[in-house]
Design a protein around this nucleic acid. Structure first.
Lengths: 189, 189
DNA sequence: GTCTATACGTAGATAGAC
DNA sequence: GTCTATCTACGTATAGAC
């Protein structure tokens, strides 16, 4: 059917946005329904396993979007430094608007579920690993040796996640811009 | 009275632990009472403003503990690199035990409350700023010029918070150890 | 596929006895 | 200072008509 995919899709859209902003525990099923305008009775039709299943699919949506964005921003530059500087400064601008930031990371949902929902924890772990690999691959393309690229992949993932946390808390993107600046030192060859 | 302080204290102890592990939304008042063994009726006597007030005081407890620990680990070393390496590797060991990590940061509660509880958001912001200042001061003591020390203070705060997030998710402290290693590069003079 | 109604638990919070 | 009882709201989830 056509309607089937449409409704499921808009539920997932709203859920993704709400989970990113308010976290897993902070978001209710009722709120997702309300926000999306989807028919209330349809949630357990599309997601028989309830909230956890929605979160699992939402993480998968985030993963896809965030990785695509990263790949686009990071490719076709003249150097690793230039690529990551552009990429991180780009993220920074999102946090400047002040209110109602749609988190650009899965950091919140990851830390919430790490010790309570094994499935969700694992899904988040996979996303972080994807990022690390992507960053490492990009660095290899720019001439870093493999072992060093892997190390930097982990480090850059941590730096960006940490800076996103500071940026959300401070309500501006300055921490991310600072990280972008320090990458000049870290990526010096 | 004496009892007054005792009960309030044990409530705060449990609340601090639970908020760090499960977050603000993930922790119920009932659970705090249960965990602490405190008399159930006494919560609104000691904390008339309810859950938010408990969280506010819990953040203050975390702030004190974490800053004290950081100051101790970072002082009396031979160089900035040595100090931060010891400090970060020390944090890393806490995440190796696998299950039931008592978060060592306020990252979870900070990201949960950033867009929903202004008072709590602000309290977390102050803690992060304290960290930045502490790190910057330490770096100045080791001979970094002030402006550079401030930049690095922000960056190191982000790196550690991000690595804590990865460590919680991965259930081991390797990300933190990796960050410690990269500080060798970043703190080179 | 969608709707209404509702079950059932637990959340935070309050009142008033002790 | 502490206890019990209770209120109201909301959480997830289900049942069954349409």
């Amino acid at each position: 059917m056509k309607k089937r995919q449409d409704t499921k899709h808009i539920i997932l859209q709203s859920a993704t946005r709400l989970f990113q902003r308010q976290g897993y525990n902070g978001t209710g099923l009722n709120q997702i329904i309300e926000e999306s305008g989807a028919p209330k009775g349809s949630i357990y039709y599309h997601f028989p396993n309830g909230k956890e299943e929605i979160a699992l699919e939402a993480i998968s949506v985030m993963r896809k979007l965030l990785l695509e964005g990263a790949e686009k921003d990071l490719s076709g530059r003249n150097s690793a430094v230039e690529a990551f500087e552009f990429y991180v400064n780009n993220i920074a601008t999102v946090f400047d608007s002040g209110d109602c930031v749609e988190g650009l990371s899965i950091g919140l949902i990851a830390s919430e579920t790490a010790s309570t929902h094994e499935k969700l924890r694992h899904a988040c772990e996979m996303v972080f690993k994807d990022w690390q690999s992507l960053y490492a691959n990009i660095l290899e393309q720019y001439g870093f040796e493999k072992a060093r690229a892997v190390e930097l992949g982990i480090t850059i993932t941590a730096m960006i996640e940490g800076a996103c946390l500071l940026s959300i808390t401070y309500q501006n993107g300055n921490a991310l811009r600072m990280v972008a600046k320090q990458l000049l030192v870290l990526l010096k060859k």
